[in-house]
Amino acid sequence: MIQLADVTKTFDRFPAVNGATMTVPKGAIYGLLGPNGAGKTTLLKLMAGILRQDRGTITVDGDEVWENIEVKRRILFLPDFVYFFPQATIQQMADFYEQVYPSFSRQRFTELRAAFSLDVNKKIHQFSKGMQRQAAFWLAFSVRPDVLIMDEPLDGLDVFVRRHVKQLLIDEVVEREMTVVISSHNLRELEDLCSMVGLMAGGVVQLERDLDELRAGVHKLQLAFRDGFPDELAERLEIVHREVRGSIVILVVRGEKRRVEETVRAFHPLIFDVLSLSLEEIFMYEMGGAAHVCETVVG
């Protein structure tokens, strides 16, 4: 759906995005992770058609985004600091969005009123920061975009609202196959939301993974053998991490789950448990090459 190929954007000789390549499939919730200054915001603004890349292509369903009205009508961008016209009320902003985005649904706007319980006729600038963010979500969901791009959107929301917003987001994805790109410097924030993650550092998307595939590809094993850990087994498994707790060995290994199980059983373990890995742990073990990046994201 969204395709970035070798995208570069330079600010005053400083390459904020430096040859980034990225693919977001339709209906995915794509978490763009990376430390501060990795180039996430710039990448999202490029994707939203706000900035123009110096090099490379950015397409949605094969069409360039830059100055393409048909494509931009399907995209909504939610910045890290939300913007409203000076002195505007939610009602006025809704009227504005309705005229600008053909997909805006007044019905949806009215439905969501209960969910957000904000005064539509009050000036948005009198709202608190968190309430302004809620207002931005309300408007964004009312636009019903095909692609929703959000820059650190959950900052400043309390736990209750955050859960609520996440649920709304998931509903939209399930019901309409909306595609979501969401950036964060904190993995934990996205863990229960994303279906895909991309890890960004130094202006490049270092790797991209489907989380289900990722979960299926790394496993945490708890093992014990009668005569100690067989060296041969160590050779036959792709071990990422190994830890010994008394007679029990804890391994993190790569590979298809069934194959790993078969391999281990061949050595007749006394204890053999397959434990679930948290997203954090997968990152820590799986992304060896980008370990330093992982630490900041997981931290």
Partner: peptide, 14 residues
């Protein structure tokens, strides 16, 4: 800055 980002994200040709 913020207004520029907002306006240019809208589907209106420059």
């Amino acid at each position: 800055k913020r207004s520029a980002d907002f306006i240019h994200s809208l589907p209106i040709r420059r």
